[in-house]
């Protein structure tokens, strides 16, 4: 898959998960969902199936980050797969809520 661009959206190849890219490193980084590389939103799924060891699911509205902190994805549609990149699972970013201003 081409380099991730902030604002672009990607989807899982094996489940319903859709993500919007909030931040991404300049270098190429493959995001994995449910054991298979994620694909562009409009791309056709390859027919691969969900890997049993990567099926913890994604949660709507949660932000997912890598250890380095240079990749951040927002879940716009949840699914069954779990997320990873660069050989490690992505973590849910802890919310630091701001006070409501409007």
């Amino acid at each position: 898959m081409a380099q991730l661009k902030p604002g672009s959206r990607i989807r899982s190849d094996v489940c319903d998960t859709e993500m919007m890219v909030i931040a991404a490193p300049d270098s190429d980084l493959e995001v994995i969902c449910g054991g298979a590389p994620m694909i562009e939103l409009n791309a056709e799924p390859s027919g691969a199936t969900l890997a049993d060891d990567a099926a913890e699911g994604t949660q709507l509205g949660k932000r997912y980050v890598n250890e380095a902190g240079d990749l951040e994805l927002l879940c716009t549609k949840p699914g069954k797969g779990s997320l990873g990149a660069g050989g490690a699972p992505l973590q849910v970013k802890g919310a630091k809520p701001l006070p409501a201003s409007d």
Binding site: G7, I22, L60, G61, K62, L74, A95, P97, L98, A100, S101
Partner: peptide, 23 residues
């Protein structure tokens, strides 16, 4: 769209309100 979506994503946590919250 990019300005307003950025503002919301940068300042509001999805679903952060309690069920009976009202503004």
């Amino acid at each position: 769209h990019k300005h307003l979506v950025s503002y919301i994503l940068g300042s509001v946590e999805f679903g952060a309100a309690a069920e009976d919250d009202a503004v």
